[in-house]
């Protein structure tokens, strides 16, 4: 258990060091850089023209269907990882483990050709 806290203590220390480095960089930048902001400088960059409309423009996110599929397949990948770790070095029924996983993978994977056939994987 101490090993556990020790290991994750290391990584927490690393995160804190990283944040400190970034904060120091930003502070240094603020201290040594000039500050002469005026209206034209603070406008949104639009290739030298006056910006047209709101910055948060309405965009059609075409990939929202892909995002649903991403969730499905990402969860599937998550199920694969623990199986992958124990498959090679277990005393258990490996053949059964493999068969079960293959059936699961197949059931999830069959959605991909189905979606392809439905035309969901079309970008434009």
């Amino acid at each position: 258990m101490t090993d556990y806290y020790q290991a994750y203590g290391t990584v927490i220390a690393l995160v804190i060091a990283g944040i400190a480095l970034v904060v120091v960089a930003f502070t240094l930048n603020r201290l040594i850089s000039p500050k002469r902001a005026y209206g034209a400088k603070l406008t949104t960059y639009e290739s030298g023209m006056d910006p047209v409309g709101q910055g948060w423009s309405q965009t059609h996110i075409r990939y929202y269907l892909f995002a649903f599929m991403f969730v499905v397949f990402d969860v599937e990948t998550l199920f694969v990882f623990p199986w992958a770790t124990v498959l090679g070095n277990t005393e258990g029924p490996q053949g059964f483990m493999l068969g079960v996983m293959l059936v699961f993978l197949f059931f999830v994977s069959i959605t991909l050709p189905y979606e392809y056939k439905k035309g969901v994987l079309k970008w434009v």
Partner: peptide
């Protein structure tokens, strides 16, 4: 050089 550059946050 980048550290000597003004840190601009656009008004938007």
């Amino acid at each position: 050089k980048l550290f000597f550059k003004e840190d601009i946050a656009p008004a938007n």
